[in-house]
Amino acid sequence: MELKPPASLRREHEELHAGLAETIEAGGNTGNAAKKVADILHAHFLKEEEYALPPLGMLPVLAEGTVLPEMQEAIELTDRLKKAVIFAEKLMLHAQTEEDVLYPASILIGEYLKLKLSRRLISQN
């Protein structure tokens, strides 16, 4: 059984690419921003189409209760996806920690130092 993404998902990606291409061609600030988005999404879509979407093409057959030996090849793809999801979750946690703890703590240190150093300068004069 050939692992292929569902046609609807492929069409959705194609439509998103086409929409971004139109926006890029329009130019200006929006076109420049769309170019950046397209560059980022292109790599994401390629990876998604490589190993995240192909197993989904088996859903209709699996929904009928059919499991075939050649479906085994999907396991390698889903294991790869699982590793990517674990990394993405860790990356999101890191970003949240930066926003919740690291950045506010660094800003607090700066504000504290401004206060202390300004008091020191006032007391020295």
Rank of each mutant, 00 (worst) to 15 (best):
L53A: 15
Q124V: 09
N29T: 13
P69F: 04
H94Q: 09
F87E: 14
M58V: 01
T66R: 10
A21V: 02
A26D: 10
E22A: 14
D39V: 07
D79R: 10
G110N: 14
A43Q: 08
V37E: 04
P6Y: 05
L9Q: 14
I122V: 11
V61R: 12
I109H: 06
L3D: 03
K35P: 02
L16K: 15
N125T: 07
I107A: 11
P5M: 09
R10W: 00
E64C: 04
E111R: 15
A105L: 15
H44Y: 04
N125A: 07
P5R: 11
V37W: 05
E89T: 05
A43E: 10
E49T: 07
E2N: 11
F45E: 12
K36P: 00
E12R: 07
I40Q: 11
I122L: 10
P104T: 04
E49N: 07
P6G: 10
A88C: 04
V37H: 05
H94V: 08
K82L: 14
L68A: 04
V101C: 06
A26R: 15
M92Q: 13
P104V: 04
M71G: 01
E64I: 01
M1P: 02
R11V: 11
E64L: 14
S8M: 06
R11I: 09
A88L: 12
E49D: 09
K83G: 02
A21F: 01
L20V: 07
A26Q: 12
E49R: 03
N29A: 15
P54V: 02
H13S: 10
R10P: 00
A18Q: 14
I107H: 07
L81H: 03
I24L: 03
E70L: 00
E76C: 00
H42F: 09
T97L: 11
M58H: 08
S118W: 01
L108R: 09
T23D: 06
H13A: 08
T97R: 13
K82N: 12
K4H: 14
E98M: 12
L81F: 13
S123A: 15
F45D: 05
E48G: 06
S123P: 02
P60E: 05
V101P: 00
Y103D: 07
K116G: 00
R119Q: 15
L59P: 00
E99P: 00
A88P: 00
P60V: 04
Q72F: 06
Y51W: 08
P104M: 04
L102P: 00
A74H: 01
R11Q: 14
E64Y: 02
L62Y: 02
K47F: 03
S118L: 10
I122P: 01
K114S: 07
T30K: 11
I75E: 01
A7Q: 15
K4Q: 15
D79L: 12
I75S: 01
L59Q: 04
L113E: 12
G27H: 05
Q96W: 10
D100N: 13
M92V: 06
L68R: 08
A63Q: 11
G31Q: 07
M58K: 03
I24C: 03
